[in-house]
Every structure is written in C-alpha cells, then in structure tokens.
C-alpha cells in the first residue's frame, strides 16, 4: 500500500500539488485522473521520487520515501515497475535484452534462468517468440507497450506505475493493455497506479479513482460512485463525451 499524506510540490513558486492525501491499495488498480495540466504526471513522478516533494509524506508499506537517502530510494525502486507513456524501451537493445536488463542488473540468477524468466514474462504478455530478437523500432506500438509491461514485471515488483498506458493506441489494443494490467495486478497482488484521462480505461479497470483538479485532490472513490457524485468538476471531466452522457442517462434510468 502507498500512503500519501499532505504532499505539496511547486515549481518556481507555482503550486502544482496542493496538500494531497490519499491511499493506494494492494491488488487494486488505482487511477489518477484529471484534465491536462491538472498535476497528474507531477503527482505520479513525486510518488516514485523522480520529483522531490516540498512537504508531506509518501509511505510505501510504512517506509517513508521522503525520509530516504539516495541509496535507500534506489533499493526501494527495485520493488517498483513502471510503464512509460512512450514505452521507454532501450532502443539499442532487442526485445529480449530489454526484458533481461533488470534481471542482469539486480538478480543473482544464472544466464539461463534469466532468459527463462524473461521469456516467461514475454509469453505472459502474449509476445510471440519471433519478436524476441527484434529491435523496439521494428515492432508495433501495442507490442512495445506489452514488452514494456513484461520488463516492468520481470523482477516481481510490489508496485506498478503506468503513465498513460493507452496513449497512441487504437481502442482494441487499449482494451488488451488495460485487461493485461488488471490481470497482472490481481495475479501478483500489486499496488498498481495508472495515470490516465482515458474514460474507457477508467470504467474498464479502475478500482480506486483519484481525481485531480489544478493540483488539488478534488474527489476520490470507486468507478461506480462516479455516476452518483455531485462534484461538478468531475462530472464535467467524465461526461465530456456524448457517449458517457448517454451511459449516465442509461445508468440513472
């Protein structure tokens, strides 16, 4: 579980995160939602420690990130997997080498065990074997995301962060990626945090939703509660599309 208590972050005097407190539970897909510029990415990067917060506490199962030194943060990060918006696969390595990389850096397995583990993870995300020796630039965007998921989970992380995992993907592939994230979250009982403004994802896999507006926590709850909230800003965001207005109407009916 990740517990966030009253965190504050500003850049050049501009308050970007304004006293945010929330909890991200294990075995759940926790979604951070909000409009562009609402502070989602800064919030996520602060949770991982890529940005140092100006105030407040971030605890990983009782271990306070904000009190840790660099060495302790690096040790904690070995329990963290992250899926980046642009996949962030190492373009000088093949697909298999990308997944092997965390194992080579941090595991004590022999080479064959590492290859077996990497192949297991790649199979788990449905990457066919003929792709293993291709470079990231030679595979599709959807496959790149799946390889990035395989790399993120190869060390059995306790916490999985995903920054807009469906960005740039078609609706069908987005659904596959969503379901994959949901499946591995439950299978490995991970604490998964997704930064997204894709309503399909939110309604598909969001267990716990945190809505940010102008750097403040505006609302949090479950996806079912979204339909009954009286929060105007959240309704503006959620029901911006006609499709979801119809869904709401049908839900209320």
């Amino acid at each position: 579980m990740i517990s966030v208590q009253d965190i504050v972050k500003s850049f050049d005097g501009n308050m970007v995160l304004n006293h945010i407190s929330t909890e991200m539970k294990d075995g759940c897909v926790n979604m951070i939602i909000g409009q562009s510029g609402s502070g989602k990415t800064v919030f996520m990067k602060s949770l991982i420690g890529l940005f140092q917060v100006d105030g407040g506490r971030i605890e990983y199962d009782g271990r306070c990130l904000t009190d840790m030194n660099e060495k302790e943060i690096r040790a904690l990060r070995r329990e963290v997997g992250m899926l980046f918006q642009g996949s962030a696969l190492f373009d000088s390595m093949t697909v298999l080498e990308n997944v092997l990389y965390p194992l080579e850096m941090f595991s004590d397995m022999n080479h064959q065990q590492m290859v077996d583990r990497a192949k297991f993870c790649l199979e788990h995300v449905n990457i066919p074997e003929h792709v293993y020796n291709l470079m990231p630039s030679e595979i599709s965007g959807g496959q790149q995301k799946r390889v990035a998921i395989a790399r993120a989970i190869v060390l059995n992380p306790k916490y999985l962060f995903c920054d807009e995992p469906n960005s740039g993907l078609d609706p069908k592939t987005s659904l596959v990626i969503d379901q994959l994230i949901h499946q591995i979250t439950q299978e490995f009982n991970m604490c998964t945090i997704i930064n997204s403004h894709d309503m399909n994802s939110i309604m598909e896999i969001g267990d716990h939703i945190v809505f940010l507006k102008n750097g403040s926590l505006e609302w949090s709850g479950s996806k079912d509660e979204i339909f009954h909230t009286g929060n105007e800003a959240l309704e503006d965001f959620v029901f911006a599309s006609n499709l979801y207005k119809k869904v709401k109407a049908a839900h209320q009916a």
Binding site: V80, F84, A88, M105
Partner: peptide
C-alpha cells in the same frame, strides 16, 4: 535522446545509477 524518450527515467525507476 535517451533522456527525452524517458529511457533514462526508466533506468532510474529500476534503481539503476
């Protein structure tokens, strides 16, 4: 290029210096 495509961030998240 590694920096702007978040490859360096990915290494940092893994705990790599």
């Amino acid at each position: 290029t590694m920096r702007i495509t978040e490859q360096i961030d990915a290494m940092e998240i893994m705990g790599v210096n």
